[in-house]
Amino acid sequence: MRAFLALLRREVFGLAISPFVWFLLGLWYLLNALFLLQDLARPAVQNDLDLLPMMTFGSSGILVWLLLPATPPLLTLRLLAEEQRLGTLESLLTAPIGDLAIVLAKYLAVCLYFLVFWSGVLGMFLLLAAEGAPLDPARVLGGFTGALGLSFLFLASGLWTSSWGGNLLFAAGAGAGLNYALLVLPVLFRNEEGLLGDAARAMDLPHMLDSSFASGIVDTYALLYLASLSALFLFLTWIRLVSRRWVP
């Protein structure tokens, strides 16, 4: 446990002192503020402020299609790909800490740090509420939960692509590509008949955001789906680390 906490602390600290991460955080806040202002200026939202969480966290928002798939891999690339690039991975893997603990500590660290990204967005909604905007807390918190769950999934997939090698550009690009595939593929096939259509509908992340989270409902299926898929990517990352032992 001590080793796990030491690695967790080091990863959070490493993210906190990285100028690139600060730049990313600034850009994230700026773009989110701009998107929020843009959403607020829409006549539909001005007539009914309850639409704002849907606009921000639902599938019609730019956040879901632009910032969410692209940002997590830019954070996760430093977790394993950079360790491989710098040559520090061997020291880590020969320290008295298990491979699974390494994966979980790194994942937890980046998830905790991503809360800093989200806290600013939540802060903007709190600011609106403080100014007397009649926001529906269930929709805001539901939308926020969905976006958070989706970010944690994308961080897990990003961690997996980060384990593929020491090429940072590839790690980030593959992570973003994978995230877009997770978002887009079910949308493309959700109207199909048969097994393909059923599978696409069961994995339709934008639909989950709209029909449950951003509507103020926390759907257990959607939560479980996000959690299982995240667990799958963490498992794949662990497999990638332990596979060094499998060379015949």
């Binding site: 001590r2 080793a3 030491a6 690695l7 602390r9 080091r10 600290f13 320290a95 008295p96």
Partner: peptide
Amino acid sequence: QEYLRFRAGLKGLG
């Protein structure tokens, strides 16, 4: 110093 403290934690030093 930070690096060595991190590694000491990783090696379970209390």
